[in-house]
Design a binder for these strands. Structure first.
Lengths: 110, 110
DNA sequence: AATATGTATCGTAATATTGCAATATAAATA
DNA sequence: TATTTATATTGCAATATTACGATACATATT
């Protein structure tokens, strides 16, 4: 069907899925890496950096923004984008949970 | 088009995207959480645990396995699934990078 | 106000994902 | 070997994603 049964899962599971899904595209990974490198930049900088058209970049930025992984504010007639710690803080707990588990589990089980 | 231009991105970016995309569904988050809780289990246990049909679970397990996030081995006529540290180790570096950056960045920039 | 610059939205085509019924396959057991 | 149990695969319908040209919109600048 192409439709996810979100109503059957917990809010936490749905939220984590939204966040990881937002990261689940090489262009969006590249955008995050670039923002970490330059601290902040405008959309046009990313368009110059990545091999995608401006509307496509704009769409990817929107998805990252909706997920809470980046934020953007007007600066003159451009929009200054940077990493939003809110989204990454939410993911942090999940991976800490996984890593704590894996560190405790000495040898792989099966 | 629905087709990702993977050839224009680095191997690292594509690999991270594959891993995070594999986590980008509430059912697959739920499977990971369940595997951490019970250490290891067979497919049928997950079918009983989640509100999805057996073929759907099987498909989600396949995606997690392909990404390197879980592994499964025959145990009798069933298959024992558990967390695969390989995939999570690959993701770890990326989030460490992000968190190091965010810890250094005192106040949000824009 | 007219123009320029930067970004978002619309519309659309191509492809991918999600979900499940039906069915196939694999291993254990009677 | 027939049956049971457990899982994977196939095929399909519904929906979502990706990408971009065309265009709209918002803010500066002249």
């Amino acid at each position: 069907m192409g439709i996810t049964k979100t109503e059957h899962f917990t809010d936490e599971q749905n939220e984590l899925a939204i966040l990881t899904k937002a990261l689940g595209h090489p262009a969006r990974i590249a955008i995050i890496q670039y923002l970490i490198k330059v601290e902040s930049c405008i959309c046009g900088d990313i368009v110059n950096e990545l091999p995608l058209a401006q509307p496509t970049i704009s769409q990817h930025l929107k998805e990252l923004k909706n997920a809470g992984l980046i934020k953007g504010n007007f600066e003159g007639n451009a929009i200054c984008y940077c990493i939003n710690e809110v989204g990454f803080d939410k993911i942090k707990g999940f991976f800490r949970h996984v890593n704590t588990y894996l560190d405790k589990r000495k040898n792989s089980c099966c």
